[in-house]
Amino acid sequence: MEWLNRNKVWVGTAALVLVAAYVFYFINGTIAVSMFSNAWFLAVPLVLGAMVGVIGERSGVVNIGIEGQMLVGAFAAFFAAAATQSIVVGVIAGALSGLAMGAFLAFTTVKGQLDQIIAGVVINIIATGITSFYFESGKTIPRGLPNFDVPLLSKIPLIGPVFFSDGPIALFALVIVFVIHVLLFKTKWGLRTRAVGEYPSAADTAGINVIALRLVNVSLAGILAGVAGTYLSMEATSSFERGMSSGRGFLALAILIFGAWRPMRALAAALFFGFMSATASQLQASDVVNIPQQFINLLPYVLTLVVLAAAAGRVRAPGAVGQPFVKGD
């Protein structure tokens, strides 16, 4: 009851959105399902990217290299799968390359105290360089990750076909949001992580190994970026294109702020953004309004800007974000 009281704005908004979605569904089921599916399809890499940001910034490390980590993940997954003709190897390679990129950020910024923004930029430049230089056209993978229906859950009207008839990574993205939420706010690890991100010297005094925790968190978060990349090249499509992350890593950062550094709200923000994109292309394709498509396509960005402006001041980044921790400083 107390929880409901504290979160009444969010619960109310969620309920309202849900009702609106079902009203839409009963007016025109086909279009509603197709648009919400499209929204989730576009939101998956944004959600995973935002989770990388949540873990990093909650630990006190800014990660603007999500874009590059994603791109390397997409590249490694696709070419490992193409070389071995095994999609399992591809997925593992995608996740491990993400881990490597995460570790790179962790060791340069946490151990080496390199400026976090510079490290992120370095990752993005390296990623573009490597994936363009070693790119080979004409490679194929046996098939992409298959879609499947989750028993029972996929039978729910609207929610079932949208969230529970997708590929494994989309399902993973949905689950990981709840897992990270619980870990961050209900476990010892979560408390320590938040302490390290808010006030590292206090955490240090309390006996937490700040450096080690940051190293582990930022490295492991990289896996999620690698998985997001794998989604792009092996689940959403079965191909790799140079620069195929197309700014999704940067969008994920906006979603992280939009979602106030909280996993569940970031999920909602990503869905909102996905839905705006779906609306834009739907208006374009159905030709109901006769305005240039460039203006329609501005819609998601303008709305995001409006919401971000409205949320400004009410959300606050973790206290120690961007500052390297030096014991005894």
């Binding site: 086909t30 279009i31 959403a236 499509t237 394709a285 498509q293």
Partner: peptide
């Protein structure tokens, strides 16, 4: 049904977006 990619820079190298659009069109018949 006709859609152009919204962004300029990556408009020709965004297969994930293209796949999403195709999925939506197929779902709409």
């Amino acid at each position: 049904a006709k859609v152009y990619h919204p962004a300029g820079d990556n408009a020709f190298s965004d297969p994930a977006w293209g796949a999403g659009e195709a999925k939506k069109m197929l779902a709409q018949g």
